[in-house]
């Protein structure tokens, strides 16, 4: 991989199965040391995309290169440079921790001199010291996932594809797992990780949001927030809510206003009412204002909004 090549580059990547298009002209670019979150509803095409990037499925159209190798024409070269965790747990349950590591170490041709050290590293990373001889099927979810990650990085791949690695794992173990991901990224590894836990999207440098096989949006979490709302979100504590909502609904510069619990969420765009002017504006209309604070929308809201607006524009066109 030359230093200026992106770790992953997909252009117009498409996968059609008989009758439907799972991935539809997807563009994706991932740099070294970057953690990209792959977010989307079930059946959006996340797994299919990852499988194409690993060389497990042949693209129907478009191209992708991983570590500078074409996934369609040089899948074996791609496989030398990647680590992959499939959606379903896929280590050998009837082998022990040590035996699994030894097997994957052999398959990835880890040099004999480095073998013991890398094995120790993987075991300590998974927190499995003292359980090296336990059969893998007897381990709890979190350990299994960390061991799977340990096996996938035995050969120090520059690129990692993790397909829902934390699904079904308890929250604390998920946290630990993300710490590991960030450590690896800090070492220069490019990581594409799909998840359906929205809070995990926050841990990513960038997010690729996909729906119906198409890329809906790509950017940092704050970029996506901005883009989805078209302005900045404020939380307004005021009474009575109904009158305030009515007043703000027709005010210039207000993109959206909605009741959120016992407060009001207001999105303000450019060139109209500003946040500083908001208390005066409401007070003039006999509304008592407690406070106006900037708020961050949850990423879940952002995704729902982005997906639904994209679906609307698609339906219209």
């Amino acid at each position: 991989m030359s230093p200026d090549n992106p770790a992953v580059l997909a252009e117009g990547l498409t996968k059609r199965f008989s009758g439907f298009t799972a991935v539809d002209h997807l563009d994706l670019r991932i740099e070294k040391g970057e953690v990209v979150g792959f977010i989307g509803p079930n059946g959006a095409g996340k797994s299919t995309t990852i499988r194409m990037l690993c060389g497990l499925l042949r693209p129907s159209e478009g191209r992708a290169s991983v570590a500078g190798f074409d996934v369609g024409r040089q899948p074996e070269a791609v496989r030398e440079h990647i680590g992959y965790m499939s959606q379903k747990f896929s280590l050998y349950g009837d082998l022990t921790v040590r035996e699994n590591l030894r097997f994957f170490g052999g398959i990835y041709r880890v040099p004999h001199g480095d073998f013991n050290e890398r094995m120790r590293f993987a075991i300590s990373m998974a927190g499995l010291e003292g359980r090296e001889d336990a059969l893998v099927r007897t381990l709890a979810g979190g350990w299994k996932q960390r061991l799977a990650l340990g096996c996938a990085i035995l050969h120090r791949p520059p690129i990692l594809f993790l397909d829902e690695p934390t699904s079904g794992v308890e929250p604390e173990a998920r946290r630990l797992f993300w710490d590991l991901i960030h450590e690896l990224a800090a070492g220069g590894v490019a990581i594409l990780v799909s998840t359906h836990y929205m809070e995990e999207a926050e841990y990513c440098n960038r997010i690729a949001l996909i729906d119906g096989g198409r890329l809906v949006a790509m950017g940092t979490p704050s970029e996506l927030r901005q883009r989805s709302l078209g302005g900045d979100l404020f939380e307004v504590d005021c009474v009575p809510l109904g009158a305030a909502l009515k007043a703000l609904g027709s005010a210039q510069g207000v993109i959206e206003a909605a009741i959120f619990g016992d407060k009001l969420h207001v999105v303000l765009g450019q060139g109209g009412l500003s946040a500083d002017e908001l208390p005066r504006f409401l007070a003039d209309r006999d509304i008592r204002v407690g406070s106006v604070r900037p708020a961050t929308p949850s990423l879940e809201d952002v995704f729902v909004r982005l997906v639904s607006t994209t679906r609307e524009t698609r339906a219209a066109s």
């Binding site: 497990l56 496989r79 030398e80 499939s86 379903k88 050998y92 398959i107 990835y108």
Partner: peptide, 14 residues
């Protein structure tokens, strides 16, 4: 059947 094949074929093994 056990789902280990997907992992195996993602490695450089021929």
């Amino acid at each position: 059947e056990r789902g280990t094949m997907e992992q195996l074929i993602s490695t450089p093994v021929t």
